[in-house]
Simulated assay, not measured.
Amino acid sequence: MDIGKYKQSRYDAIIEIICNYKGISKEQLSYILRDRECKYLLFLLLEKYKCTDVDYIRKDLRISTKKSIRNNVKKAEEKFFINREFREKYFELEKIAQKIL
């Protein structure tokens, strides 16, 4: 399997995890951007599994620059360290991701 397809499959799995968590379909993915907590959870998982490729994110989330992605990851990390409930949700999603990936 080439690296591009491997990253794409990981990216798709993370998107599916977040959509299932939020109870939405992939077509409704734009709703995640409205919910900051879910958006930050998504970016933390994407960062952890090294799936922050601008091409993938541009297609689904309409975020077009690496700087925007970096800023979202930075805000997500800040929230992770400040908010205990957010951390618990992240660890819950990470357990699911570990089983799938």
Results as ranks from 00 to 15, higher is better:
17 I>D: 04
55 D>N: 15
101 L>C: 12
89 K>T: 00
32 I>M: 04
40 Y>F: 10
21 Y>D: 15
99 K>P: 01
98 Q>H: 14
8 Q>R: 13
70 R>N: 14
95 K>R: 14
16 E>R: 10
46 L>Y: 06
47 E>F: 11
56 Y>G: 02
84 R>Y: 15
28 Q>W: 08
15 I>C: 05
59 K>Y: 14
95 K>H: 11
75 K>S: 15
37 E>F: 07
11 Y>L: 06
28 Q>L: 10
14 I>Y: 00
26 K>E: 09
56 Y>E: 04
35 D>G: 01
90 Y>F: 09
53 D>W: 08
20 N>Y: 07
82 I>Q: 08
34 R>T: 13
71 N>I: 07
33 L>Q: 08
85 E>A: 15
95 K>Y: 11
43 F>M: 00
83 N>V: 02
55 D>L: 15
78 E>C: 08
35 D>K: 07
73 V>N: 04
27 E>K: 15
101 L>A: 11
60 D>K: 05
80 F>M: 09
48 K>D: 07
96 I>S: 07
101 L>R: 11
82 I>V: 10
82 I>D: 03
11 Y>F: 10
53 D>G: 09
10 R>H: 13
6 Y>C: 09
46 L>H: 04
84 R>D: 15
30 S>K: 12
68 S>D: 08
42 L>K: 02
100 I>Y: 10
62 R>Q: 12
4 G>I: 14
79 K>F: 02
12 D>T: 02
89 K>E: 02
41 L>I: 03
19 C>F: 06
31 Y>D: 13
5 K>P: 03
8 Q>Y: 14
68 S>T: 05
85 E>T: 12
2 D>G: 13
52 T>L: 06
43 F>A: 02
41 L>W: 01
14 I>C: 01
39 K>E: 10
62 R>D: 11
86 F>Y: 03
66 K>D: 11
31 Y>K: 14
8 Q>P: 05
24 I>H: 03
34 R>P: 04
61 L>E: 06
56 Y>T: 03
57 I>R: 00
75 K>Q: 14
12 D>Q: 08
31 Y>L: 15
99 K>Q: 13
50 K>G: 07
96 I>Y: 08
26 K>R: 11
48 K>F: 08
33 L>T: 09
62 R>C: 09
58 R>V: 07
64 S>F: 15
29 L>A: 10
55 D>Q: 15
68 S>H: 09
83 N>A: 05
40 Y>C: 03
10 R>W: 11
13 A>W: 03
93 L>C: 01
27 E>P: 01
21 Y>H: 14
24 I>L: 01
90 Y>M: 05
100 I>H: 08
65 T>I: 04
7 K>G: 08
3 I>H: 12
47 E>M: 09
3 I>G: 07
82 I>Y: 11
